[in-house]
Amino acid sequence: MARAARSTGGVAPPSSTPLRRALSAGAVACLVLLVLALPVLLETRTYELARAAEYAIAILGLVVLVGFTGQISLGHGAFMAIGGYTSGVLMFHTGVAGALTIPLAGVVAGLIGFFFGFPALRLSGVYLALATFALAVAVPSILKRFEGLTGGSGGLVLDVLAPPGRLHVRPERWLYYLTVSIALVLFALTWLLLRGRAGRALRAIRDGEVAAVSFGVNVALYKALAFGLSAAYAGVAGSLLVIDSGFVNPDTFPIELSIRILVGAVVAGLTTLGAIPLGALFIEFLPIYSQQVSQQAPAVIYGAALILIMVLLPSGAAGLIRRLLSPVIGRL
């Protein structure tokens, strides 16, 4: 499916006339403003919006991996768990403020992802999917085993997130702005990264490994790096997830979480950064609204959505938007 949508959309505009550049800069500015204003506009949903931003970070990681190297991971929940537990354990045992543990969570998850990425190199397509799936199922049981550190299946109860110092902000707003700023930074970073040399290398790998090798791309290293980067994003997302709940146990990161992130990435279209927030909003708000029908409705809808999108819209929301907008953009 990565191949179905070869066009690079938000990553590298196909041509950049001055008008187009001005327009896209304007659009990005408007979006950023909107994102910053959201908690004021949707006061009561601030917490859920922060959650969506966390998902967006995790989805971003998955898109980097799937969309740009063609590798699949069904186990990003595992890396979220690693990040989340890094924060949780640090906060619980040393009393460090949650926000300070985020970078370390990213680094730890990233390193583990990087080293997982090397064996993963040898696994193609379906096997990698299998291995990561197994990883996601296995991590909660590993966490339960090391009870002294992780609190076992009972988990760890942590301090509730508080704004630093005498800052008078409501906690959920502080959470929202914290999460969103991290997300924005990571998005910008990824965008810059994918625009340059590394991005070209990754796309070359996705479109044909053998050809990429013959152009002198160190496939092994780039794939492992992509895996590490992707896992680092997941770690950051997991860390934020733990910080905002003030609690962590193995069930914070069930296999459903991995699948949910995957659904978000698929809804967003896998190859474009621009549509990721849509995917994140989808997976955050769908359960909230559909649970009124039945407790199990979200799962059924997720599943049906995944199937329908793969069958009808293999390029996801991004593809749909692009198709709808292409008459407009084409004329500019």
């Binding site: 397509g125 599943g303 049906a304 995944l306 793969m310």
Partner: peptide, 13 residues
């Protein structure tokens, strides 16, 4: 991978 995703959708469904 598309087919894999579809079977995962089926799993969740």
């Amino acid at each position: 991978l598309t087919v894999v995703m579809v079977t995962i959708g089926l799993l969740v469904l």
